[in-house]
Design a protein around this nucleic acid. Structure first.
Lengths: 327, 327
DNA sequence: TTGTAAGCGTTATCAC
DNA sequence: GTGATAACGCTTACAA
């Protein structure tokens, strides 16, 4: 910056102004400085800027894993919103573990991010305390069922479960199973199960099976889930899978085995992934607005950073049950 | 840090040492300092550290888009390698545009990253110059066909095209089509086409159709690609899709239309995604080691950062043609 | 093994 | 509209 100032015949302060608040500088000197910047290929040092101004223009994002389509596409949208606002995005994997999330928060805090976007509302006490002490705005996503620290952008997993229960019951099915992630890992999947469960109880029923897959799941696990369900209750009539990838591979497996969907086995997915409507029959599923979540979470954190919004708020997005052929 | 030092009864220098090179400090004072750190919930400021030491422990990663499974899973692995080495990862989307990549590089450089991981070897002149001037190590991925700036981790897209050509020719097919991304966007897809093309030419043939889809592609585009191919040449016998998602949706569409795969239409994908072996017939495809690429790219950048490796090198991973039912 | 002093590259503050 | 000066919070270099 000193070099630029020298070349432009100004002080570093003026260079700084040209870069961050050009409206305060006269046209003439601004042009001069900009020329010097270009000629010297000057690139500002954001660490120095942060040190002097205490704003990093970094947002830290913690998701379970980028390998899960949902989160990858959420983050995709987050980046699309934050980048034009000249925020950089740092990403960490919690791997569905609160402890790992806590460690990540701790290490991200060293970067003095201007905001955090977390997944879910389940965090360790220390994590909460660290965040609170730091005063950094936090947005929690994907969980509209529980209280958030400040701002939340999500949907009700519980409602999703109930909707699917409704659907199955409307078709008169009674032997209904659930396939999701491990109970101690996947809190949001648990909420979907609870919703399904509560809906069935209203009719005096209970899920015939609840299969817990180890996270992260791969599509292949859909077949394993199907088999485990049939092990527990060979007469199962319907399965709610906690992710479309699972449901699709189970559906294709049913095709292969000659099990008629939905007559012999009704299948419902969750997410509405790309290929959900390509199968035969097309997959009935719950459309989850994960890209909207990313967009709104990023917008919310910007609003909070810029003090445009002061109060806590909870944004709950509607879910849509896409009734297609498989259930 | 001053507070910590005061509480521990030492100088800030000693605190600094305890944090970064504890082996230089006596057991007794170390314990004292660590206690003070804990009690005060002290979190170091990495900007100050960077300013003083010129190492940010940040690696910048630029990929076309996180919505493409390949890149999401590559980045997943990159994070898994870099995080334990206490590097943070910043991510940007080039959206398949060199200009956007250039702008990203420029803005990431303000963070003084210790390394860059880029996608492909195609960059603007300015981008190359900026990187060269900055002296930051660069790893280029996914392109083993062209020269890299320094280190490259990839595979030969050209070879992939040839392999698929081999396969189709070994089955005696002559009317072969290609479905990929726009020629001016997707250089790596172009290389696959070139490989296929060159292989066919050896037998005096040429592709009957080359469909260019606009990026980013969704699975749905597979059906569009299929239709466009049939428009150009209704007698097409085989299609090589530049991504599994496309091939899978085309395959399912063939099932739906009663087009027999591979007898009437042979289909080959690229990538070996999760659901590729779930279809009926299972999808023949080229297995792309995208997670290995992420892992090796991250390892390579660490090696370079730590000066464990001095010379440029090109790591070319082998591709495997997975011959399953669809071709 | 520990402490002192200088400096990293910017911005805030206040003066002009 | 512009400039001088003092931070910002750490590490490097050197001294003790």
């Amino acid at each position: 910056m000193v070099d630029v100032a020298r070349r432009a015949g100004t002080s570093t302060q003026t260079v700084s102004r040209v870069l961050s608040r050009p409206e305060l500088v006269s046209e003439a000197t601004r042009v001069l400085v900009e020329k010097a910047v270009r000629e010297l290929n000057y690139i500002p040092n954001s660490a120095a800027r942060l040190l002097a101004s205490t704003t990093s223009r970094i947002v830290a994002v913690i998701i379970p894993s980028l390998s899960a389509t949902v989160y990858a596409r959420e983050v995709d949208q987050i980046i699309r919103v934050l980048e034009p606002a000249s925020f950089s995005v740092m990403i960490g994997h919690s791997d569905y573990s609160e402890r790992r999330e806590e460690r990540l928060i701790q290490s991200f805090l060293e970067r003095r991010p201007d905001g955090f976007i977390l997944t879910g509302t389940q965090h360790t006490d220390l994590a909460r305390e660290l965040l609170k002490n730091s005063g950094v705005p936090v947005v929690e996503t994907f969980d509209g069922d529980n209280d958030a620290m400040d701002i939340s952008v999500g949907f009700s997993n519980y409602e999703a479960g109930r909707k699917v229960g409704d659907l199955f019951r409307s078709r008169g099915l009674t032997r209904i199973a659930y396939v999701g992630g491990r109970i101690e890992q996947d809190f949001r999947s648990n909420a979907r199960f609870d919703g399904l469960d509560s809906r069935l109880r209203e009719d005096g029923l209970a899920p015939v099976a609840r299969i817990q897959l180890k996270l992260p799941m791969s599509a292949r696990d859909g077949v394993a889930g199907l088999d485990q369900v049939l092990d527990v209750d060979p007469l199962t009539q319907a399965i709610f899978f906690s992710a479309d990838a699972l449901a699709i591979s189970a559906l294709l497996e049913c095709n292969r085995r000659g099990v008629r969907v939905p007559e012999q086995m009704a299948l419902c997915g969750f997410g509405n992934y790309d290929l959900a409507d390509a199968t035969m029959p097309a997959l009935t599923t719950v459309a989850v607005p994960f890209e909207t979540i990313g967009e709104l979470a990023a917008t919310a954190i910007l609003d909070r950073i810029n003090d445009r919004v002061k109060e806590p708020r909870r944004i709950t997005l509607p879910l849509q049950l896409l009734r297609r052929g498989s259930a």
